[in-house]
Design a binder for these strands. Sequence first.
DNA 1: TTCCTAAAACTGTGATCACAGTTTGCGGCC
DNA 2: GGCCGCAAACTGTGATCACAGTTTTAGGAA
Lengths: 226, 226
Amino acid sequence: MAEAKSRRPLADSTAVHDQVYDAIRQALITGRIAPGVGVSLRSLAAELGVSPMPVRDAVRRLVAERALAINPANKRLSVPSLSADRLQQLSQARLWIEPELAARAAPLADEALIKGLRAIDSRLDAALAAGDVDGYMTANHAFHFAIYERSGAEVLLSMAGGLWLQIGPFMRVVFGRVGTGGLPADYHAEAIAALKARDVEGARRAIAADLSEGMDKMRIAVEAGS
Amino acid sequence: MAEAKSRRPLADSTAVHDQVYDAIRQALITGRIAPGVGVSLRSLAAELGVSPMPVRDAVRRLVAERALAINPANKRLSVPSLSADRLQQLSQARLWIEPELAARAAPLADEALIKGLRAIDSRLDAALAAGDVDGYMTANHAFHFAIYERSGAEVLLSMAGGLWLQIGPFMRVVFGRVGTGGLPADYHAEAIAALKARDVEGARRAIAADLSEGMDKMRIAVEAGS
DNA sequence: TTCCTAAAACTGTGATCACAGTTTGCGGCC
DNA sequence: GGCCGCAAACTGTGATCACAGTTTTAGGAA
């Protein structure tokens, strides 16, 4: 399933604006575009080698998802800055939605999902050991959403996706400062076990614990950093 | 069908695509565009008397907010259809977010907010008495978001806004079938009282009860209708 | 130097056109 | 009469241009 580690992160979608969306989204999550700095349609277009038109579409979408902000006075684009208050709201929303997605996925879990999760988790451990921050964040994202997608709850799933997009820059701050030291991988094993046993409440608890730990770290890092 | 150019004074936003966004959003919420039917950029543009360009921007935003859907094969636009499963997810998300927003608003409530809410609520009652469905839904939206905006929780607020946008068509189905018979206005009075007393848990409970009642009706209507 | 002004560069927005793919509808064929 | 096929209309997408603000830069005057 997800073991294909495509060197091209851009999917096979023929729509240019979708590829641009993915590119900017990835740049945002991995922190290649730092929070607070301004961007522009034409500069992004030049950087990606496309015309401003598909960039405009992608940016419109990212603004709607609050992954980019638009200055009401200037109408100029920028990456939203990180604040403790924003992090708290995003954390709270994640704690509502993501454990529920895991709980919904539990009864639907099958052997293929478990195998896929184990593969992702080993990639995650490898990235952790190597200090590969990008690899860790990519694997972590893949792990969570492999579970969430199994839930079949499309609406909640898209909400979770939007939250990860907004919280991505915070994660980068944490791992940029603290490193990949503390390891929440235990909860991943716990989550896999709960899913294998189709234990609804166990899955909910494992994901909630995983989230709580990660977000506590982020909170500490943000409070210390500001 | 070209002479239907309404010279409505849409907001004070100078950006055309924002006005188009508001227009389509309102049409969606009030059910003027029925769920399941297809729309197109050019038809919307002609109807609103603008060029396709700002419509394209507005639609991109609405698609990102899941208020419009895009057929992956056709790439054609349509209004998402109503399903019991979708309603359940939207309801659950609303029950997480909106009572929390009310709870956060409670300590910040002041006399101006209370007065505003009372004014909105009387407009709501008038619309109910007159059987004015559009007026009722507009007032109900205004009531809830007057409270939520007071919370200052920007992230959660925008999530709530997205949820209302998606649940709008469901509301129309309810009131189109059941009429404005059952009245949840009692909970509005309860919410106002709790806010006036700066009672955090009371506000949370009142809004939760209001939501539960309304969404139960929607669920019944959708299950009966499908 | 320091300050102020004018020009150049850059910004998002909207309009218009071209293009490829899909849908629709009409006409003729069996 | 029923069905097939082709052309016209319509769809979203992308490129290019014009325009009005804003920001930045350059230059000249004190």
